[in-house]
């Protein structure tokens, strides 16, 4: 079956993500980009419509098997928008002919138009993808480059767990300024330990505190800088569990919370329910309470959720490679990134 054939690469990606072979979002982003590049350059498609259909199939496949995986689907969604734009640019006459009336009434003839074949669409898309790839690769550096605008001398910064982006951000600032970092260890995985070790190696004055000490320490903190798993459409965060508590403590002491986020983390979906599997998932309880505990485990259910939802009012600023944005501006960024027709597939 040709349709299944096309999905093989995406299933490979899904199984790799599931089995933890590709772990951080940056790697997932690169893998997705490669996958799309291959599809566009070598794939079997004759016109924009077919290509878009294939990408939509992939998005569906990913969101079905990994409802929580946002990076891969976001990138594919963005590429859908790119295809639409490139197509519109290609068919000049259509762009000219588009009257105000057509825009307002939302003429449905679009669907048909995409089936026209374009000689150089493939090349232009590939050009665009190369550009996009460079954007992906430099995104972390671009975010880090803004560090000096936000971190000042002798400030105390609080961060939680491990995040590549935050790590680079802090290290970049440390080249020119002296400041102190408090790392929350983030039980039960204690990834904060690794983060702290790495920061300390770059001569940043680092303190590790347990999750329970956050509230006590917050009064001295000047800024909270964290990474996130994804940014929801309302500007809220899906971040590692424990971040909500930290954000609330920051709110209490009026400490600004800054979230470093790549563009591909912006997700056009809303949180519908905290309990639903579509928002959160639970990992093995073994990290919370070991299996050898005994018969107690027959009677109790242990939850070890991976994510926290942080509502937008607790976030002060998103920092992406384009600069800082307030949570209320996320909707605007979303409409720049994705076509409204692709929000839900």
């Amino acid at each position: 079956m040709p349709e299944n054939e096309n999905l093989t690469d995406v299933i490979k990606l899904i199984s790799d993500i599931r089995h933890g072979k590709v772990f951080n979002s940056y790697e997932i982003a690169l893998r997705t980009e490669q996958l799309l590049e291959k599809l566009i350059s070598e794939g079997q498609w004759n016109n924009a419509r077919e290509l878009m259909q294939q990408i939509k199939d992939k998005i569906r496949q990913v969101s079905q098997s990994l409802p929580l995986e946002a990076t891969a689907t976001n990138i594919m969604r963005h590429i859908l928008k790119v295809i639409r734009e490139e197509f519109d640019l290609g068919s000049e006459k259509k762009a000219e002919g588009q009257s105000l009336h057509q825009i307002v009434t939302g003429d449905q003839s679009d669907e048909l138009d995409y089936s026209e074949s374009h000689g150089n669409l493939r090349n232009r898309l590939l050009d665009h993808l190369t550009e996009y790839k460079v954007e992906l690769e430099t995104s972390t550096e671009n975010i880090a480059a803004q560090a000096l605008e936000h971190i000042h001398t002798n400030e105390i910064i609080l961060t939680v767990g491990i995040s590549n982006t935050v790590e680079k951000f802090l290290k970049h600032a440390a080249k020119q300024r002296k400041f102190q970092v408090i790392v929350v260890e983030a039980a039960p995985l204690y990834r904060g330990h690794k983060m702290a070790a790495s920061l300390a190696n770059s001569n940043i004055q680092t303190t590790v505190i347990p999750d329970s000490g956050v509230f006590a320490m917050m009064s001295r903190v000047n800024k909270v800088i964290i990474g996130t798993h994804s940014v929801m459409a309302d500007g809220g965060l899906r971040a590692a569990s424990g971040v909500h508590a930290i954000a609330l403590a920051a709110k209490h002491y009026s400490v600004p919370v800054m979230v470093l986020s790549h563009m591909y983390k912006l997700t056009p979906t809303y949180v519908c329910s905290h309990e639903k599997d579509t928002f959160n998932m639970c990992a093995s309880p073994a990290n919370v309470i070991p299996y050898s505990t005994g018969p107690l485990l027959n009677k109790i259910t242990v939850y070890n959720p991976i994510f926290d939802y942080v509502p937008p009012e607790l976030v002060t600023l998103f920092i992406s490679h384009q600069g800082g944005n307030a949570p209320s501006y996320v909707y605007r960024l979303l409409s720049e990134l994705y076509h409204p027709d692709d929000y839900e597939l």
Partner: peptide, 10 residues
């Protein structure tokens, strides 16, 4: 083998 407490269901 896996470590497990006495009386556990598993």
């Amino acid at each position: 083998y896996q470590e497990a407490g006495i009386g556990q269901m598993g």
